[in-house]
Design a protein around this nucleic acid. Structure first.
Length: 207
DNA sequence: CGTTCGATGCACT
DNA sequence: GTGCATCGAACGT
């Protein structure tokens, strides 16, 4: 099964966001393959979008947004969370889709272990005992579970350890709902969050 | 149920 | 120095 080609991402960002629902994010890391079905994403589109990292023009951090479609844009936020995006549109047109939640498919043992490490770092000697459906619920949680870090920033999503695959032909299509984006201050009016309503792995409701 | 709040580091002004 | 595209513990109801 091949990863989605770069041309998949070189389209209008909202189209890419809708089509990413149901696709499978894969990360080969530490000798283990972890994957999950995408059930929640958000679009960040252009310098006119106040919530997009490109709102203030090109900087050292947002450089991948200005690159060609199909790259990963991974950045560190709140001092403790990596967030992973897929760069869309075309070079010079800064836009991306943030992956916010996955339904875990493979590598659950490794996911539990990585989430446990995070928990153990914060608390002393207590193992994480959350439900598996919550392993990849939320953008910071899914990068932690899959082992995605800044090492994957600017990496191509069509080849390499971090990839996105088309939905399985056997899987029924997921219904897509839209809402305002979560966790942002500016730009809440734009209904650019796509998600599977009622799915247990979808993160918190919009503000 | 609900809301508040601290942890934690870096990009940018 | 300020403000995050967050998370979960610790409260209050």
């Amino acid at each position: 099964m091949a990863a989605l080609p770069a041309s998949f991402y070189a389209r209008p960002t909202l189209t890419v966001a809708a089509d990413l629902i149901g696709c499978v994010l894969v990360h080969d890391h530490g000798g283990v393959r972890c994957s999950g079905r995408i059930v929640e994403v958000e679009a960040y589109i252009g310098e006119a979008d106040p919530a997009c990292h490109a709102a203030a023009g090109p900087t050292a951090r947002n450089q991948p947004l200005y690159g060609p479609a199909g790259l990963a844009y991974v950045y560190f936020n709140y001092g403790m969370h990596w967030l992973v995006n897929a760069v869309t549109e075309a070079a010079g047109a800064p836009a991306a889709v943030l992956v916010r939640a996955l339904e875990p498919l493979t590598g659950l043992e490794a996911m539990r272990a990585r989430r446990g490490e995070a928990r153990a770092a914060a608390r002393d000697g207590v193992t994480w005992s959350g439900r598996d459906a919550h392993l990849c619920r939320g953008p910071g949680n899914l990068t932690r579970a899959l082992g995605i870090t800044g090492a994957q920033n600017h990496a191509p999503l069509s080849a390499g350890p971090l990839r996105i695959h088309a939905p399985s032909v056997k899987a029924a299509p997921l219904p897509v709902s839209w809402s305002g984006r979560v966790g942002i201050r500016l730009g809440q009016d734009r209904p650019w969050r796509a998600y599977v309503a009622g799915h247990p792995a979808v993160s918190g409701a919009p503000r």
